[in-house]
Amino acid sequence: MQLADIPSKILGQIGTVQRITFPRQGHTSTVAVLETADQRYVIKKTEHELYNAWLSDEYAAMQLLQGTGIPIPKTHSFYIENQSRWLLMDYVDGISLRQFLAGYPPEKDKEKAIVSFGRCLKQLHECPCPIEWQQVEHAWLDHILTKAEYNLAHYSVDGTEELLAHLKINRPGDMAPTLIHGDFTIDNVLVHNGEVVGIIDWAGATYGDPRYDVALAIRPKTNAFEDERDKDIFYDAYGKRRLTEEEYRYFEDGIYNFF
């Protein structure tokens, strides 16, 4: 992405861009930080059918959740240009929790960040869910399994037909739905001075099973949730029951492989 590639309507909103930089990139979009004389913005661009749909869903979710108290970047515009989609939002001054923990901070700083992470997910799951997401015909798990089947047939995913069949037969017991993020990993939570300051990548947000968020939150990564102590600290802050091993495997080793 070059400055000249950005739609003029977006540039007209923010004024003269003095600097454009590129943070670590993900797999679904191109992300750039735009700096003007008095503010920084993040712009995301997608150019693939599936990722375009995700970016559209992300924008809609962030619009619905503004003003809830959940730390969400403010969105400014969503723009469609041929096969591309563009989302403009405020920059959040922080780094991903994964990056922070991978730097092996002092133990007290690590624990502080994990506590903030757990409390943040508690806040999210206790936040009233927008009525638009509650008025659905099918339960979240039915919907997510249907999407998994579609993704398996149309896109390259890690899941297999055998795994999907297993997930359909071995469904976990019911749990009351809540607002969920849908991709609550340590990559998508930003921290500053050991405190959560932002949650990003909201394409999967909906009224669903909170165990999915928890399973993705405690996936082991470098210096993160590699031992039980980190999980204990997280669960104490989250304040709700722990997942069973079967629940964790169903959501993290199962459902997540199709998304």
Rank of each mutant, 00 (worst) to 15 (best):
G182I: 04
D174S: 15
L145E: 08
V115K: 03
Y155L: 05
K168P: 05
G159P: 08
A165V: 04
A165D: 13
A176D: 08
F184H: 12
R119P: 11
K147D: 13
M175P: 11
R171K: 15
L167A: 12
I114Q: 00
P128D: 09
G173V: 06
V136I: 06
F184C: 03
M175F: 14
E126S: 13
P130Q: 00
P128S: 12
H143Y: 09
R171G: 08
F184R: 01
I131Q: 11
T178C: 13
S156D: 15
D183S: 04
D142F: 02
M175N: 12
S116W: 05
L124I: 01
V157L: 00
P177H: 01
R119L: 14
I114S: 06
F117A: 10
I144A: 02
Q134G: 12
D183M: 02
E132I: 01
H166V: 06
S116L: 02
Y155F: 15
L124F: 13
Q134L: 07
C129S: 03
Y150P: 03
Q135T: 02
A165Q: 15
K122W: 07
K168G: 02
T185A: 04
A165Y: 08
M175C: 14
H154C: 13
A176Q: 10
E132Y: 04
I144P: 09
I144E: 14
Q135Y: 06
L152S: 06
E132W: 14
D174V: 09
M175A: 07
N151T: 06
G182E: 12
I131S: 15
H154E: 03
F117L: 02
L145H: 02
E132S: 13
G159N: 02
I144Y: 09
A165L: 15
H154G: 10
W133N: 09
Y155K: 11
G159M: 00
A176W: 09
D174P: 03
R171S: 06
H154W: 02
C120I: 15
L179V: 05
I131D: 15
P130K: 06
E162V: 02
L145T: 11
L164M: 08
A176S: 10
P172T: 09
P128E: 00
A176M: 05
D183H: 05
V157G: 03
L121N: 09
P130T: 10
L124P: 01
L163S: 00
G182R: 12
L167V: 04
E126Y: 05
C127S: 10
I169W: 15
E126M: 13
F117G: 13
P172F: 10
Q134D: 01
M175T: 01
E137Q: 03
Q135L: 13
V115M: 03
E161K: 00
L179P: 08
